[in-house]
Design a protein around this nucleic acid. Structure first.
Length: 493
RNA sequence: GGCCCCAUGGUCAAGUGGCCUAAGACACCGCCCUUUCACGGCGGUAACCCGGGUUCGAAUCCCGGUGGGGUCACCA
């Protein structure tokens, strides 16, 4: 059996969205599982809409995800170039061949004329199908049209009868009546190829053996098969996987919030979480595992276990997965991702000494167990980096307005001052001792202390917070809170 | 609208004629743990779209309906 070769061929007209990312992932997994090659090709035949910006975004999204390509941009390969815009000669040659073999022909109808006929057909409730009127133009007729300044397109002859059946790996045989297809355009009037043509020419040339793509392309497939047949080339295996739908069951679009890989990255998701989630959308491993590394997926991936029902994506599960990975990965890796965000919010300086790095890492360590994304780590840790915070209003009402709180905090402050070394065991011991001595409930002391140290009512374990902040800061913040409470009283009198 | 695909809980899904009075995960609810919030542990609510067949037997096969989605460009 020959080598498995698959490809992912995005058109660079925007960022890589999660549907595309999943299709690419499946291709990649399939290639790796079969020890084959994964080709990345940029389908930029639409020169008007393609941008180099999009190309960069797509490549960087793949790099971030950790999906590498064996052939394609930057890495090259035996079938280079991997940009369709640089392969136009190839398509022209193929088109000329089809012309010479009378499998294709010139058509001089203008877009405007076609549009009108299409509208008429729609109005008459008929399928808007090209009528083939230019099929048998004589050289004289052609000359006249060209003299009139008309630039022709090239169309492929499609039989009026019979049917084309797609042997789809996921969906079985799907047949389409040829009569419903029309002589579609393979070369535009400006000499550029159309998608259905360029794709097949390249897939043939690049020896692609399996075409794994989203279901939205299923109805394109008979056309592409026609091109394969016209070119007299063997068909690859087609496999159309289900689509990813937005929560409202409609096709993914910008209005559904984050849909691009880029956006998920910006929102603080980890690549392994996104990959894991995407893999589970439409595929399931043989065992019950939900947490899968790329290596696990490669080992277990099989086209036979790819489902055919469209999947609605659900952020909650992705987020849960992200929380899991956030706590599994090395602390320094998370820290390194948090740092730029902290800088962005001016919570830490641009430059800092090594021991401050360790401080950040410690903060990340205490905070990350209770959040789900990188960004949430930042939100949850602001008070570790800035003394300038307000007290949560509800917290103030609940914990600072009680009688004798100021006095209580003063006692706590005094007790803490004597704790040495200032670690978890001893700070907690000191607090417990004070609580017992005063005969109060632990919450009576712990809640106001938390508010004093963080301005918040919800934080990691209090002694964690205390120790991470350090003795000096903790005591300073208690003093500040005591002042605040005393002022509060005065204002009320 | 024509053509095509799909149909198990709110979501992802297992299930390929009897093992199903249907797994597992997320979410949700309750309890436990606990100084708060999480984490963790335990438990719970919740599904085979409808109607006909085929069969001794159907979530699984067939037909019809309904619903959802895709596609009908000189876009990819």
């Amino acid at each position: 059996m020959s080598e498995v070769r698959v490809r992912f061929a995005p058109s660079p007209t925007g960022s890589l969205h999660i549907g595309g990312a999943r299709t690419a992932l499946f291709n990649w997994l399939f290639a790796r599982n079969n020890k084959g090659k994964f080709v990345l090709r940029i389908d930029d035949t639409d020169t008007a809409r393609s941008t180099s910006d999009s190309i960069e975004q797509i490549l960087s999204a793949f790099k971030w995800l950790g999906i590498n390509w064996d052939e394609g941009p930057e890495v090259g390969g035996p079938y280079a170039p991997y940009y369709q815009s640089q392969r136009f000669d190839l398509y022209r040659k193929a088109a000329e061949q089809l012309l010479a073999e009378e499998k294709a022909y010139y058509c001089y109808c203008t877009p405007k004329e076609l549009e009108e006929r299409r509208k008429e057909a729609m109005a008459a409730k008929k399928a808007p199908r090209y009528d083939g009127r230019c099929r048998h133009l004589s050289p004289a007729e052609r000359g006249k049209l060209e003299a009139a300044g008309r630039k022709p397109v090239i169309r492929l002859y499609i039989p009026d009868s019979g049917e084309t059946v797609v042997h789809d790996y996921c969906r079985g045989d799907v047949s389409f009546a040829n009569g419903l297809l029309d002589d579609f355009i393979i070369m535009k009037s400006n000499g550029d190829p159309t998608y259905n043509f360029a794709t097949v020419v390249d897939d043939v040339e690049m020896k692609i053996t399996h075409i794994l793509r989203a279901e939205e392309h299923l109805s394109n497939t008979p056309r592409q098969i026609m091109v394969y047949q016209a070119l007299a080339k063997p068909l690859p295996v087609f496999a159309h996987v289900s689509m990813i739908l937005a929560p409202d069951r409609s096709k993914l679009s910008k209005r559904h919030g984050a849909t691009s890989v880029e956006e998920f990255r910006e929102q603080g998701y980890l690549p392994e979480a996104l990959l894991n989630y995407l893999a589970l959308l439409g595929w399931s491993p043989e065992d019950d595992s939900e947490i899968l590394s790329l290596a696990d997926m490669v080992r277990q991936f099989s086209l036979d276990r790819v489902g055919k029902t469209a999947a609605i994506y659900d952020l909650k599960k992705l987020t849960w997965l992200n929380g899991h990975y956030l706590n599994e990965t090395a602390p320094d890796r998370v820290t390194n991702q948090v740092i730029p965000l902290l800088k962005e919010r001016r919570l830490i300086p641009e430059e800092f000494p090594q021991n401050y790095y360790y401080y950040i890492m410690e903060v990340v360590g205490t905070v990350r167990t209770r959040v789900k994304t990188i960004n949430e780590i930042v939100d949850a840790s602001t008070y570790f980096f800035s003394d300038d915070f307000e007290y949560d209003q509800k917290g103030v009402n609940k914990h600072f307005c009680k009688l004798g709180v100021a006095k209580l905090l003063k006692q706590a402050r005094y007790v803490l001052e004597k704790v040495d070394p200032f670690n978890m065991e001893l700070t907690e011991f000191a607090y417990r001792e004070l609580i017992e001595e005063l005969g109060i409930k632990s919450g009576d002391l712990i809640h106001p202390t938390r508010l004093a140290l963080s301005g918040r009512t919800m934080t990691p374990g209090l002694f964690d917070v205390m120790v991470t902040l350090g003795k000096e800061k903790s005591i300073g913040r208690l003093d500040r809170a005591i002042d605040f409470i005393e002022n509060l009283k005065m204002n009320n009198e």
